[in-house]
Amino acid sequence: MTAEARPVVPEPRWGGRSLTAARAAAVLIALIAAVTVAYATQGQPVVVTQAVITGILTGGVYGLVAMGLTLIFGVLDIVNFAHGAFLALAMFVTFGLVAALGVHPYAALAVSVPLLFALGWVLQYGLLNRAMGGPLQNQLLITLGISLLIENALLLFLGANPRSAPLPGDRALPVLGAVADTSRVLAFAAALALAGALWLILTRTRVGTAIRAVAADPRGAEHVGVDVRRIYALTFALGTACAGAAGTLVAPFATIEPTTGQLFTIVAFVVVVLGGMGNVPGALAGGLVIGLTEQLGGVFLPGQSPMLPVFVVFVLALFLRPQGLFGGNG
């Protein structure tokens, strides 16, 4: 009778640890091969080195942005199109604090993270919880509405002029003949730290256990006394708080505009699908893959948009491995 419940869906392939490692190795080998080919065929090796370094650093940022999204997608099954808008909001908060109070950009974390956490909680509790269990597109449409609201409120009240919140003392550090900005290196380090922190929360705390239980089986979790609606709100809030942290961390090197978030939303979805939904370390790995794909794509296909190879990878991943490159939690 088990078959009745899930008809014709392909069998989930349960990769063990070794299979996950094998796939990760395959991706790594493919990337190394691409880099090798780039070195062999391109005239200036420093161009390739720069592409690899930029790719890795940008990839870390993409992973950072995607972490909150993968949590929301994995636990709540919500296609959160507002993620980029949350990011943009955090950037504007950072800009505002830097411009008005002259504080260090990173000090804005103390405001942006709690603010976005609270916003996420309110939105999930007030709006999205009402649509849970309904058709998938309802949640998608609500987040789409939220994103349009935030972006256009920013546009309406603050205008379309691009802003910036530079990091004091930001400079280009020399690396193997190429360069890396301090702000990007710091953002990359923060991405690693945040991934670690999230992973610890999810695996080592009671709240994390409850979140994972809800992700696996909301009804079962309810039966054993978990307040599922609260966990939904908490998870969404954690996800938006991650967007808040990411927004402040990328503010020093991003152009701050009301629509800045759109591109990040798209890239973050690519990363989430590549890394496997709900898979936090996968998001980081997926971010690196996309960062490198984008940069190497620029090296191999100079006339094209760097996003084109990213979408090709995205579509391939959707078709061939919708559960993510790295196995993960199915």
Binding site: M1, T2, A3, E4, P7, V8
Partner: peptide
């Protein structure tokens, strides 16, 4: 008995699985 595979057998014959 329940779980004996009866419905799955139908799914296999009918092409659902």
């Amino acid at each position: 008995p329940n779980g004996a595979g009866k419905t799955t057998l139908f799914d296999l014959i009918g092409g659902t699985l």
